[in-house]
Design a protein around this nucleic acid. Structure first.
Lengths: 141, 141
DNA sequence: TTAAATTCTAGTAAAACAATAGGGTTAGTA
DNA sequence: TACTAACCCTATTGTTTTACTAGAATTTAA
């Protein structure tokens, strides 16, 4: 579960969007890039992916920008991470999204696989149960 | 916490060495490579790294081979994984082994960091508390 | 009409990954 | 003493992924 720059930047941007006051909830790429120290053209691609995944919405043209597609309580870090970095599982044979056999003779009794399944579940448990609102709550309290 | 081929092969080899009967505990690169379908020359490098990290011992020359440096109860998957794939943390700012600032203005109150810290701890908790003996126990029962 | 903004695709340099290659050293055995 | 089986060690190579960068097209507000 390495977090790439792509994933990191996307999560930071989403967290920033979640914390923006309701009346100015629409933020531009430039604003986010400046605040979070992210290369603007790179962030552009990332936000576009998040939009295509249905996590963001946007308004084009002057005065436009990005805003969350759903309230912060309903967007999890797991969704964001998967969108940007792909499956969460450490190895394909325990992936829910992108299962692929590892070629063991007997997968059911593969010790490595059983442990990696636990790891996957532990990570998914955190990421899929932490919403953008939960992230806010942890720092504002 | 992605598991690279290097990490996967190393873990499989260590698990195989842990399960070998005591009287024939010394296995050659060739034997392990054949049994686990691992390119032999790649495995060679991996076992050498594990040896240099103090997790394996070896005997050179004809009739030689590799064997665990400690009993299976005393070697954790965490040690093996770290040796072969480096730090377990998903992002450097929560790494115990290789900490590095991510450049936030206030790391203590960085929401992303707090969550990633939880993820790191969850992974490390599993890997550092699962020994090679524990892996055996899970499949032989 | 102009300027501010997103959209979309392509390209690229550097690093990481997954091997492969090959010569060197050690040790058992015929 | 050869010979052979095994580990030791370092370098190289091809592929893929990562982290950007570039630029042209489109939309919208003023």
């Amino acid at each position: 579960m390495h977090l790439s720059k792509r994933g990191e930047y996307g999560l930071r941007a989403m967290i920033m969007l979640a914390k923006a006051p309701v009346d100015e909830k629409r933020l531009t790429i430039g604003e986010i890039a400046r605040e979070e120290n992210i290369p603007a053209k790179f962030l552009e691609q990332i936000l576009l992916s998040l939009k295509n995944a249905g996590l963001l919405q946007s308004k084009m043209g002057a005065g436009g920008g990005y805003y969350l597609a759903r309230p912060p309580e309903q967007i999890t870090l797991g969704e964001i991470k998967r969108t940007l970095d792909g499956p969460i599982a450490p190895i394909r044979c325990v992936s829910q999204m992108a299962y692929q056999s590892c070629g063991c003779p007997d997968e059911e009794n593969c010790g490595l696989r059983l442990v990696m399944q636990d790891v996957r579940d532990a990570i998914a448990d955190i990421l899929d149960n932490t919403s953008l609102a939960d992230v806010q709550a942890r720092i504002t309290n």
